[in-house]
Computed example of a mutant assay.
Amino acid sequence: MNRTTADAEAAFRELFEAVYDDLLVFVERRTDLVVADDVVAETFLVAWRRLDDVPDPLDEARAWLFTVAHNLLRNRQRSEQRQRKLALRILREPGGDTGGEADAAAAHVDLVRAWRHLSPADQEALTLTAIEDLTGPQAAHLLGISRTAFSLRLLRARRRLRQHLRQLPDAEPAPPPAPARTASPGGPA
């Protein structure tokens, strides 16, 4: 059913006011508070975009919104799982290092920090193989480059990631290095 803009806004407002609190409690029971707010907001965004798909009786609309929220939560969990898998796959590459729970958590934090230092092209190469599970030839085809070019890109991206991981300080970033001193003629080296 197509509604006028005023009718759509009124229907959405009524739905929002009737279901928001219950939906928030539903989502909060399944995740932390910060994520719950995001999921509920995304749920109502879906409802607004698909307002014609939302069932008319309030009970059915409520169930529809709970289903959307549940699916959004599952999608988030899958995304987080893919990120963890990426961290583990990259760390298992030669030069990677895994240990106990605490070591794995520290490695994940370090990986996130190192990831931020990579170029978008390096991130893309690693993501296509580690998260999207594409083979080298498939990723090369997707990017429109040769298999060899992709293999080199992936190799270099892994190398740079490992290099960033090795260079990360234990806590806060270290101050920039002092300028290199050059020996003056006749002075100490």
Rank of each mutant, 00 (worst) to 15 (best):
N2P: 05
A6E: 14
D7P: 01
D7M: 11
A8Y: 04
A8C: 08
E9L: 14
A10T: 08
A10V: 06
L15R: 00
E17P: 02
A18I: 02
D21Q: 14
D21K: 15
D22N: 14
D22M: 10
L23M: 04
V25H: 11
V27W: 03
E28S: 11
T31I: 05
D32V: 08
D32H: 15
D32A: 12
L33D: 10
V34G: 13
A36G: 09
D37P: 00
D37R: 15
D38T: 08
T43N: 04
F44K: 00
F44I: 04
V46M: 05
V46K: 06
W48D: 00
L51C: 06
L51Q: 02
D52S: 14
D53M: 10
L58D: 01
D59L: 09
D59Y: 04
E60V: 01
E60G: 02
A61C: 01
R62E: 06
A63Q: 12
W64N: 04
L65W: 04
F66R: 14
F66A: 08
V68D: 01
V68S: 03
A69W: 02
H70I: 00
N71S: 13
L72Q: 08
L73M: 13
L73N: 05
L73T: 10
Q77H: 12
Q77N: 11
R78E: 11
R78F: 04
R78Y: 05
S79P: 00
S79L: 09
E80T: 03
Q81N: 09
R84Y: 10
L88N: 08
L88Y: 10
R89Q: 09
R89D: 07
R89E: 07
I90H: 09
I90Y: 09
L91K: 04
P94W: 02
G95A: 08
G99Q: 10
E101K: 11
D103L: 13
A104E: 13
A104C: 09
A105I: 09
A105N: 04
H108I: 06
V109N: 05
V109T: 13
D110W: 07
V112H: 10
A114G: 03
W115H: 00
W115T: 01
L118S: 10
S119I: 12
S119V: 12
S119K: 12
A121I: 04
L126E: 00
L126I: 02
A130L: 01
D133M: 02
L134E: 12
L134G: 03
T135N: 03
T135S: 15
P137F: 02
Q138A: 15
Q138C: 05
A139F: 01
L143R: 07
G144L: 02
G144E: 01
I145T: 06
S146N: 09
R147L: 03
R153N: 09
R153W: 07
L154Q: 00
L154M: 05
L155W: 12
R156G: 08
A157S: 10
R160Y: 05
R160I: 05
L161T: 03
R162T: 06
R162M: 13
Q163I: 05
R166A: 15
R166S: 15
Q167S: 14
A171P: 02
A171S: 14
A174N: 06
P176T: 13
A178P: 01
A180L: 15
T182A: 11
A183D: 03
S184H: 11
P185L: 04
P185W: 05
P185T: 09
G187K: 12
G187H: 13
G187C: 11
G187Y: 07
G187N: 07
P188E: 14
P188Y: 08
A189G: 09
A189T: 13
